[in-house]
Design a protein around this nucleic acid. Sequence first.
DNA 1: ACAATAAGTTAATTATATGTTACATATAGT
DNA 2: ACTATATGTAACATATAATTAACTTATTGT
Lengths: 71, 71
Amino acid sequence: MVRNNRITNNIRRLRFENGEMSQQELANRAECTRQTIIAIEAGKYVPSLSLAFKLSRVFGTNVEDVFKYDE
Amino acid sequence: MVRNNRITNNIRRLRFENGEMSQQELANRAECTRQTIIAIEAGKYVPSLSLAFKLSRVFGTNVEDVFKYDE
DNA sequence: ACAATAAGTTAATTATATGTTACATATAGT
DNA sequence: ACTATATGTAACATATAATTAACTTATTGT
């Protein structure tokens, strides 16, 4: 029932702003797989809250700096 | 693979701080079901990022004011 | 005593995020 | 030319978020 996902993310940009971090390294540090990073960057789906927290911490930011919710 | 969910939430407290909002009203406003609210408050599972955004907006706050990630 | 509301429990089902594996392509370095 | 690395796609499997429904309990109001 949680539809209307108007959630975007800045992961691709954040990776490059953080030393051109590769998808693989981000996946390692966020403890997920590279395919998950690819899918999220491609907008195929929105990650879990857990993964969103981990990703934001890798970049030293908080969730809302990485993911935008268009209301 | 995204394990170690050390994510807690303040929903119960926020409901009461916002006019003793009932679970049903919160569910309506966040566009989910009452059972989902119960389960999240009880710590049975962590919501999706979409629902986390919606819940935080109902309370006029951001995601990290509602959900805490213990790293 | 009765009705209405809020909250909880349980079980069954559906939807989706994530993992796994395999294969393809482009680029940089040697 | 060869190798390594980064990125992408696709199919399938699994774990879990989320829905729905039925029933229960407690509280409040009339």
